[in-house]
Design a protein around this nucleic acid. Structure first.
Lengths: 340, 340
DNA sequence: CTGAAAGCGCTTACAG
DNA sequence: CTGAAAGCGCTTACAG
């Protein structure tokens, strides 16, 4: 590898100071055009690699942003991440991704890593049970945060998310309008704000329509395709089985439909199903999934842009408007059924 | 935020030197037990945050490993990443993830970032067209690399991958043994070593069985669910249509099955389908997907462990044995069909 | 077992 | 427009 090439290597070779080299490489107008070009050309020539650790030690800006979510392999987060990526690519920041799998310790250890690396900010979908103090601690130590998807009681940071209660109410009302009276809700957990809101929206819609809601119609828990698939058995054996299911998200809906199909029934015909999120796969599922578009791209875009604002000292409003979900009707909710 | 807390803050408060504090916090046996405990306790008390940039500037070890793949949201890579994560969590390294989406410039910019951050190593599934020199350059600059999934001609680094040709031959022979004579291959690209090997395995099996292979039976390109879904139309209109399809991967297979179902045919009955990878979803698809297990976890585990070996100066063999794929038979390949 | 001092590779006032 | 020098917060020989 020979000698390590650094600013002073260039400075010595060209007979200028390291200050001049440093300024030239960052396109400072202080440096004469001809000097700058000479320096940049030579740097490229000898394969100089900028040492960001040294720079950031000096400037206390690392160019690193953290993003931590429950699970980046979940298409819902994947779509948010893609739009964060698009937004941040423009800003030249590097982003450090992590899953916390709803494990508070894993989340803490990631935040700790960010602090140690001097990260400039973090976008997080907080793990279940995240105390407001965890976020306050990060901010006190110079790590500004914005939240996505889930709120944290008492945290003084902006949250970007959709109107979950409104969304499940849309889906539930759609099923009601098709003539369904017995509607189940499968998946989600009351441990997250998202879970509570989505369940509430379903309840509100049922109540507003004067419909009964039996406890056995609620199957809490599932949030993945596999869990949705596994829940099919439990759903199919409910006494006086509901004719429709409002699912926590698209993954659960698709899994559940596969489980229903495996049991010999036809989803969308024998049982109406709705999802939530409108992930890309929803449109090509069998049957195509009726679902609630949740504005993932918009969530990511707004969160990234708010974080950049925050760390550039621009004001960011604490309370953010909810993104309005939209119902996307496809085949899985079926055709109107006859009312008795 | 008050004053920034650093090693010297602790040293001053306790009347010791920064050297002692530094050693104590890293559990050096050089420091007396009592001193160490006093220092650690005080550090915790006042909320000291270790500055990794400063440390790594001094030691030239950053504790950062890079992982770059085509698309982390692809379940195939997702499973590899999970096992890398598991392996690296133990080592206390932080990992920096990135997608290159087969864009060489994006990959270069990521490698550049790793170099600037002084990353300790990188695991990559190289973008299409990656020249061996890109990898050599990284290594020359102190960034050891190991490859996963795809090989790069001329690159002097270990590659961890499955035996792709053997795998598609397994799937193709399975279809042949069920009585199929006209078998299509859908998806994949000849631009990657993986693509070439998988196609070759299919060809070899067909040829060995004395079967004809028509050019129209090969639909190259699709690598995602959506693309598999879209390819259904093309497949279904092939003249003298094949009765079975060997798909590039599970995503394509699942998408294709959905497309076939949308057209009113029953996958697994009207058309036999096999996948590749055996991602989690394969088992719960409708119908359950016959596929080739590709050892993702094993690939991730071996690659991570080889990288750790490499950067700890332990020897790593350049040539690595291929992971042997296994056929997992489920419903999508259907029951034996009558031969004419 | 502990301390004083140099140095990792940058950037930033400050002088000229 | 350019240079000399200090300093970011650690770790590591070296001395005691």
């Amino acid at each position: 590898m020979g000698q390590k090439i650094k600013l002073s290597t260039i400075a010595d070779a060209l007979g200028v100071s390291t200050a001049t080299v440093s300024l030239a490489l960052r396109d400072s107008p202080l440096v004469a055009d001809e000097t700058r070009e000479r320096i940049k050309h030579h740097a490229r020539e000898i394969g100089y690699i900028y040492n960001r650790r040294a720079a950031s030690l000096r400037t206390s800006r690392s160019g690193i942003l953290g993003v931590v979510v429950h699970d980046i392999m979940n298409p819902f987060f994947a779509e948010i991440l893609r739009s964060i990526e698009t937004e941040l690519d423009r800003s030249g920041q590097t982003f450090l991704l992590s899953n916390h799998y709803d494990d508070l310790e894993k989340q803490r250890s990631f935040i700790d890593t960010l602090l140690q690396l001097g990260a400039d900010g973090v976008i997080m979908s907080p793990a279940i049970g995240t105390p407001a103090e965890d976020i306050a601690m990060a901010e006190r130590n110079g790590l500004p945060a914005v939240l996505i998807a889930r709120a944290v009681e008492g945290a003084e940071v902006p949250v970007f998310r959709g109107d979950d209660a409104y969304g499940t109410a849309l889906a539930t009302n759609h099923l009601i309008s098709l003539g369904h009276r017995r509607i189940a809700m499968v998946g989600g957990t009351d441990q997250t704000s998202t879970g509570r809101h989505r369940y509430q929206g379903y309840l509100d819609a049922m109540t507003a329509a004067g419909l009964e809601v039996k406890p056995s119609w609620r199957i809490p828990g599932p949030r993945t395709k596999q869990a949705g698939f596994d829940a099919a058995g439990q759903f199919l054996t409910i006494e006086d089985r509901p004719t429709a299911v409002c699912c926590w998200n698209d993954l659960v809906a698709i899994g559940l439909m596969n489980g229903i199909a495996r049991a010999g029934l036809v989803p969308g015909v024998d049982v109406a199903v709705t999802g939530y999120d409108d992930i890309e796969e929803a449109a090509i599922a069998t049957p195509a999934l009726t679902t609630v578009w949740n504005g993932q791209r918009e969530v990511g875009r707004r969160a990234a842009s708010a974080l950049l604002d925050k760390l550039n000292g621009r004001p960011v409003r604490l309370s953010q408007e909810l993104i309005k979900p939209e119902l996307h009707v496809r085949q899985s909710s079926g055709v109107p059924i006859k009312t008795p």
